[in-house]
Design a protein around this nucleic acid. Structure first.
Lengths: 311, 311
DNA sequence: CAACCCCACTGAAAGTTTTTCACTAGATCA
DNA sequence: TGATCTAGTGAAAAACTTTCAGTGGGGTTG
């Protein structure tokens, strides 16, 4: 049928109504036009990474690890950079238009609309370094709760009282879980968070949050920062005021970005196993037993406490 | 002819020799199979970035800027991560197999073999932050020579004698030009580089190079580092030895990565105009007057001296 | 107001490309 | 050594796209 061919050729002259009916019928019987077939074949070797925050050094390390692994298996990595704090909806159309075999979302909020669209198109989705309870979706993350506990334990061990917290973006699992673990371990020791500020997971805001915490009369003796960038900002803010780390102020971060090991900081932090997280994400994607429509599987990997000099 | 169809279908059973003859004949008469036509159409909206050093924070800022711009024009960014110091040849096959409309190479050595292959396939290539004299190819770069001069001028202005240099990877234009500009401006002032070490453009090696320079009896009063990461390493090494910056040692870097502005460093550096470099690269790619086979056009953009506290 | 033209859309038919099928020749293995 | 397998083949069938010659509004002109 000529009309069918026309329905599948973008720009061909065909009545919108008829085209819609043809497309619907095609969907029904599972017909795929040859053009789409080749497009699918190409896209099969392609994985899209959607990242919201490439300027935080943690995420480039993810991009790097992912790109290398995909290259090893002859596949390609498409990178989408979202504006900070944006959810994925904005780019849904564009991301789906390339019909990748899978999408990895990191540092960004997935929406149920997008999740539905991906299921419909049989595209696997894996959240990396995020877990979302509102949507049933595959996810790989570091055990943020345990990491938060470890951070708390380090600070308690050293006998600190007056413990503060610099949080990240409130509605992210990375923030929520880390804080929950931290708070729980303090509670078990009969204490609690004395002062708290939000640093939005970035340096500038982290710096502001740090200042607000350490400029008060009874400033905390120890502060847990929900990621390393904010911890480094805190250390910078402390240095500026002549507050010595760790003597006057103990600092623990989370991620173990490369700067954390630099001499200027020597930050004690929880290392996320980036390589293994990427590997797990690809395992979820490559496992044929896991279907795009399946319920969410969450793979939790343990972080490692890295003791340096800041706590 | 069935054989023709098979010649164009990857994986179809056909003798290699026959396939080659068919493809050659097709090339001759300008025949393109429908499958390849759709493949080309898809690839037209795609640009491949080949990067050698995503772990240096300068390059993620390039990825970010590039991804955003491409998204705005409805295109996609494929990222290839090369092992450090590798040339592009390793990945040539894989990179070309996706037939992107253009390739942007940053922080990696292009080979003439790859350049030839791209020309053959009508794929535009732009070098970003690199210039190669051995190959006629389009390039966009910051004016590294002028940047080197600016760095030298800053150190001379402050009356420093005993000026040192920490270089990057020796055979890169970024290293060569920056050093040349730096050396020239010193020579014009009747002085020269007193001590020099190579830091390979990365933190660890930069740290080692820094130690070798500042642990000598008559250590330099001022050091120019060919990129920011090495400058930060130098500052860390200096701090460890109790050498105060800028009082005992002035430091100038190059790039203006985000950490350079952090309170721990406040590094004086030459800012590369990343956004404009990316924009220029895309202009070169999108300008239909510039053909893939053309001689290399080099667009040089001025860097900006950013004076902070380190010099 | 009717004749005319233009245009988007169409099915039939022609053209093109892919897939299937039946077969062959060489490689592999018990 | 014979059975079996595999990669490769042309012919034919099937699938798909493009061309072509309408067709029937909707507007425009005489």
């Amino acid at each position: 049928m000529a009309a069918v061919s026309r329905a599948f050729s973008p720009g061909a002259p065909i009545e919108a109504e008829k085209k819609k009916r043809i497309l619907a019928a095609a969907e029904e019987i599972g017909y795929i036009s040859p053009a789409r077939r080749t497009a699918n074949a190409i896209a099969a070797g392609t994985i899209t990474l959607v990242s919201g925050d490439l300027l935080n050094p943690f995420y480039p390390s993810v991009v790097d690890a992912l790109a290398r692994r995909l290259q090893d298996s002859g596949r390609q990595l498409i990178v989408y950079a979202l504006p900070a704090h944006a959810d994925v909806d904005l780019a849904t159309e564009q991301i789906l238009s390339s019909r990748p075999s899978a999408i990895i979302v990191t540092s960004a909020q997935l929406t149920s609309r997008m999740a539905r669209a991906c299921r419909q198109h049989h595209i696997k989705v894996v959240l990396l370094n995020r877990v979302q309870r509102d949507i049933r979706i595959n996810a790989v993350a570091c055990d943020n709760y345990q990491g938060g506990r470890d951070a708390g334990r380090v600070l308690l061990e050293r006998g600190h009282r007056g413990i503060g917290l610099i949080g990240g973006v409130a509605n992210t699992s990375t923030h929520v879980e880390r804080v929950r673990g931290f708070r729980d371990v303090l509670a078990e020791a009969g204490t609690s968070i004395q002062a708290q500020a939000s640093g939005d997971f970035d340096y500038q805001r982290g710096y502001q949050a740090a200042e607000s915490l350490i400029s008060t009369a009874n400033r905390p003796e120890a502060i847990f920062c929900c990621n390393d960038i904010m911890a480094l900002a805190l250390m910078d803010a402390a240095r500026k005021r002549g507050i010595r780390v760790p003597d006057d102020l103990a600092v623990v971060g989370f991620d173990d970005i490369s700067m954390a090991s630099w001499d200027a900081y020597r930050l004690t932090t929880i290392r996320q196993p980036v390589e293994r997280m990427v590997q797990e994400a690809l395992t979820l994607i490559d496992d044929p037993a896991i279907k795009p429509g399946d319920d969410g599987i969450t793979r939790m990997l343990a972080g490692t406490l890295v003791r340096r000099d800041s706590a």
